[in-house]
Every structure is written in structure tokens, then in C-alpha cells.
Design a binder for these strands. Structure first.
Lengths: 129, 129
DNA sequence: TGTTGACTTAAACCATGGTTTAAGTCGTAT
DNA sequence: ATACGACTTAAACCATGGTTTAAGTCAACA
């Protein structure tokens, strides 16, 4: 199996090394191995887990909840039901958040249209004189 | 014109009074009037502005940028171009954020499907024995 | 008239999510 | 040999976005 250094992972995902260390400390990246010198070795599995962390972060799941999920991953197969429920609930929360954003975008679009009209009126006033 | 107290505004928008005061202090709610006793009076105009603040917050615009926008609103008509550009840019940022969330949701959906399948397999194993 | 309830202020406090610093340990290319 | 680059740690620091506290003012009702 191939292993990556923290620098390689950092470059690959464009995430600062300090953040990766912080995530590990907070329990978002469990079971990261070390070489003889104590340096982190990220396996393919770790990288798959990091991908999951990134998905959850991208959808604004707080760190404490990602940790809870990762604890369940480590705990094994008898937490699959719990993980399923968590992901279902999270998906609903994300969809609600997206709806809210879309709705709020309408208010912003309204402003955009008004500003465009007001600028046009200004233009016309300039042509008049 | 009708005026609202901070308590009424708080109730109407379900935002803590402390947050409304904080927004005013940070410059997100400019020109709030006061009665003789120094209490805030929110006019219809203020409430329309608050609605805008809420749209911008819902779409994750940072407070510093909302303040910049409000400063332009106060400054008057010659900032309409600036406001238009800001809103257009913000709209694009929001659409990008929504896309990222949608994409990340696919990863989550994938997990959901896998967990459902694994639970079914467990069920079947139980029926077997 | 006094005591609620709604409001005021400034300042302290808090959680979240990192980033930065300082001091040190390796491995390797010169 | 040594110096450089990549890594390690713990702890301090930071920005953001509020929330809470303490002390006080005021209006209206009993």
C-alpha cells in the first residue's frame, strides 16, 4: 500500500499542514500511522476518510459532529445504523440550507435588477442634457 | 410612519435583541433613530434594510462586507454602481458555494446508499441463521 | 409612590475553527 | 561534517460572530 506524507496530502487537497494536524488532534482523522521518526503516514484509507471529512466540511458540518461520525467509523459495523441516520439528517439540513440560500438570492437578484434600472435612468438623464 | 421598538423587531424576525444591537454597533443598521428616552426606533426603511442584512447573512456575507455595502447605501446614489458590482460578485460566490454543497452532497448520498445496502445484508444474514 | 418591564450602555466573556510560534528531530544532498 | 528541508510537539495567538453581565434609566400601572 502506498503512503503519503503530510506535505503530499497538503498539496493534493490544498489544505495547510497545520489544518491537517489540527483535524487529527480534534479526532477527524483517526488512526493516522507514523514512521520510525514519528512522521505521519497517510494510507489510501486515511485519504478516503479525509475526502469524507472534506465533504462534511463543505456542507458545514461542525467539527464536533464530524468527530462523532469518525468515532463511529472507528467503532465498526455495529454503528452503521447510527451513521446512516446521521447522514440522512445531515442531508436534510444541507438541502434546507441550500433552499434558504436560493430564497435569499431572490432578494439579491431584486437589488441587482433595481440597480441596473437606476443606472439606466441615470444614463438617459445624461443623454437628455 | 410607523416605528417599531427593538423588542418588536426582535420578535418579528426572531433575532435576539443583543444581536440587533450588535449589528447596529458594527454598522450593519445605520441611522437607527431614538426616542426622547434614547430607545431605538426602527422605521419601515430600517426594517427593509434589516431584511437586506438578513438576505446577505443567509448567504454568508461577512459582517465587514455588509457594513461596506451599508456605508454605500448611506452615501447615496453615486454608489449604485459599486453596490451593483458587489451584489453581482456576491451572487456568483453564492452560486459557487451552492454548487460545492451540491457536489459534496453526492459524496454523502453515496455513503447513505452504501449504509442502506450494508444494513440489508446484515438483515439477510440474520434471516439465514 | 413604588415597583415592574422594556429598554440603555460598555465591557467582559464565549465558542468555533483554525494559524502561528518556538524549539527540536530527522534524512539527505554538498 | 554540516546545513537544509521536511517534519514533530505544545502552547499561544487570532478573527469572526455573537452572548452575557452589570449597572442604570424610564414609562406606566397598581
Amino acid at each position: 500500500m502506498k503512503y503519503c506524507s503530510i506535505g503530499e496530502v497538503s498539496a493534493k487537497f490544498n489544505i495547510p499542514e497545520s489544518t491537517l494536524r489540527y483535524y487529527e488532534k480534534k479526532g477527524l482523522l483517526p488512526l493516522v500511522e507514523r514512521d520510525e521518526a514519528g512522521r505521519r503516514l497517510f494510507s489510501e484509507d486515511q485519504i478516503a476518510l479525509l475526502n469524507t471529512v472534506i465533504c462534511l466540511k463543505n456542507t458545514q458540518m461542525p467539527i464536533g459532529e464530524i468527530k462523532r461520525y469518525m468515532d463511529w467509523v472507528v467503532e465498526g459495523d455495529n454503528t452503521i445504523g447510527l451513521r446512516l441516520e446521521m447522514m440522512k439528517k445531515h442531508k436534510q439540513a444541507v438541502l434546507a440550507e441550500i433552499s434558504l440560500m436560493m430564497e435569499s438570492l431572490e432578494g439579491i437578484d431584486f437589488k441587482i435588477d433595481r440597480y441596473i434600472r437606476r443606472l439606466q435612468e441615470k444614463e438617459e438623464a445624461n443623454v437628455q442634457k
